[in-house]
Computed example of a mutant assay.
Amino acid sequence: MQRRRVIALSAAVLAAAVAPGAHAQAGYPDKPITMVVPAPPGGGTDLVARLYADLLSQELGQQVIVDNKGGGNGNVGTAIVARAKPDGYTLLMQYSAYHSANPALVKELSWKPEDFTGVAMGAIAPHVIVIAKKVPADDLKSFIAYAKANPGKLNYASVGAGSVPHLGGVMLNKAAGIDLVHVPYKGAGPATADLVAGQVELMVVTPPSVSAHIRNGNLKALALASDKRHPAFADIPTTAEAGLAGYTLDGWFALFAPAGTPQPIVDKLNAAMRKIAATDQVRQRASQLGTVLVDWSPAEMDAFARKEVAGWGKVIRDNNITID
């Protein structure tokens, strides 16, 4: 009898200790959620975040607030979420280069990829090579010829040193045998604005940032750095079709939570993201932006992210790429 009482008392104590956390998970969310975007408004990461935020608010029954925390090549906003309480109320809509390239580029990074757990993929975007309207070229071959005739005189914009557009420019120089000068910006918004204004000549960027400018003729799209054309830009040739075989470049925008976030919360967020991504509304908008949607579990998202960190680290080391 005494032994039974001890066991019962132990079970009661354990239940009391576990109950608050379990109740918090069961009732999640019971207050607004902040989705940090580590970039200024107007770029691809911001657009994808806002594509999901309002619908997540409806799906979860709590407001999802997009909070732009640009600066430090994405590291300011990323570090904020890395240090946040892992309770599901502070999330990160992350851009691929910030997550995958910065660990190999920044010696004293205030966060590491292991500080996060993957929740869901927001969108994958093949990069497009776009040039300013003033540039005297209408296709990739003629631009390469123009660039070869003007070595070191043409500039390419990026959304920050170490970003995929920066690395894509390095790879374009190497693949095409040209010498474009890198001009880093603090996000896709200001970079695109200067490209439209003709302050720089070229950018390799994800379609969401420039799709409207391509359609209205403010920018000229030379090629999609992908193995196949995108339905929303069916008239834009792939790089192989445009004469630069082997040059492909994908970017992505994914939702992460701080490491240690309870799995039931991660699973609930993942289910909500995947449900939203399956709607006609989001599929049509994602296609208009030139992105591709994938239906991944948290485990699949995590595995992909780890592979990306390893792959981009190798590219950076093999090409001796450093932050300007």
Rank of each mutant, 00 (worst) to 15 (best):
A104C: 08
L105D: 11
V106I: 15
V106H: 09
K107A: 13
E108N: 15
E108T: 09
E108G: 01
E108L: 03
E108A: 12
L109H: 04
S110M: 01
S110K: 08
W111F: 11
K112G: 04
K112Q: 14
E114A: 14
D115H: 07
T117L: 00
G118E: 01
V119A: 04
A120Y: 06
M121E: 07
A123F: 02
I124W: 09
A125G: 10
P126Y: 12
P126Q: 12
H127T: 12
I131T: 13
A132N: 14
K133T: 07
K134L: 05
K134H: 14
P136V: 05
P136C: 06
D138K: 13
D138C: 00
D138L: 02
D139P: 04
D139Q: 05
L140M: 10
L140A: 04
K141D: 10
K141I: 07
S142V: 08
F143G: 02
I144R: 05
I144N: 06
A145E: 15
A145R: 13
K148W: 12
K148R: 15
K148C: 11
A149W: 09
N150E: 03
P151H: 12
G152R: 08
K153Q: 15
N155F: 11
Y156Q: 05
Y156C: 05
A157H: 02
A157N: 13
G160H: 10
A161H: 06
A161M: 07
G162C: 11
G162L: 12
G162M: 12
S163A: 14
V164E: 13
P165H: 09
